[in-house]
Design a binder for these strands. Structure first.
Lengths: 150, 150
DNA sequence: TGAAACAGTTCTACACATGAACTATTTGTC
DNA sequence: GACAAATAGTTCATGTGTAGAACTGTTTCA
């Protein structure tokens, strides 16, 4: 690893620390009404995925299945999601948003967008597009290799 | 907020979720020997800051002071840091890495770099520079405004 | 001098993560 | 067809991180 790479990583970690912490703090302030940031992200994944399972969520967020069970239990107790067993393979439990979960999620999503969007004004459209495209490529690489950096 | 902005935010959150989770999972695998990711970041901040205080850390990571006390207590019990009271203003406690803390930190930092650097190979140097510069600008904006998006 | 401000800690309660052990199913193989 | 192995999900115990209120000790300043 050359010095340039080291320097980039230091700068990336510096910026990353600030950006993620600040965004997460702002979002927390806004969606405090009964939804944590993690719960928001889980609802988001459930909503996006047809026939979403615990195993899928665990892999998506790089976490053990037992952690997902805990989160899902809390969302279930709060009446935000529904669990449906697959009739053909009764090991599988499909997760979906309840009506109430849908409402809460919609509100939270709006607030997340309200938090982030003002910052976009400080950038050129072209730069934003390029930035996000690179971020997506990085995400793709990480997801594809699953950590195996061949 | 226009539709383009909404779309950008959706894409950003999608990529963000994957990148942060994957990086954090990879780092966790590597520095499992007695350091959590948060502890690593705290050590990093202490190291970078001359006369680092709890209040500074709390503000840096957007968290209550009591959370910092908890983290610092654990690092202290593990013999990784030292607390020194200011002689002139005895309310202040300065934090610094112990010899052992320094060693553990150095090792962890190397491993973080080993985790991230392979991904850099997939990008043009020019693009990396631009990406990080934008990320830094975003970090700067967030830190400056402290959430007040005037 | 006394009230207010400040730095840090303690306490309680909760969310999240982990890994091992467990239940209930399904799959694959002899 | 029976039975071991694999799979999906849950439970449990333990540790970490976060929040907020109440608290101690110290400094500032009116």
């Amino acid at each position: 690893m050359n010095e340039e790479a080291e320097h980039w990583i230091t700068r990336y970690v510096d910026a990353y620390l600030i950006v993620t912490r600040q965004i997460s703090a702002r979002i927390k302030e806004r969606i405090a009404e009964g939804l944590t940031t993690d719960q928001f992200l889980i609802l988001r994944l459930i909503k996006a995925q047809e026939q979403c399972t615990s195993t899928y969520l665990a892999e998506s967020v790089c976490v053990g299945k037992s952690s997902i069970t805990a989160i899902i239990n809390r969302l279930d107790e709060a009446g935000m999601i529904e669990r449906t067993r697959d009739e053909n393979d009764r090991r599988l439990v499909y997760l979906s948003l309840s009506e109430q979960g849908e409402e809460v999620y919609q509100l939270a999503e709006k607030q997340v967008k309200d938090v982030i969007s003002p910052y976009l004004l400080h950038f050129e459209e072209e730069d934003i597009e390029k930035f996000i495209t690179m971020f997506e490529k990085l995400a793709f690489l990480m997801q594809e290799t699953g950590g195996r950096t061949e």
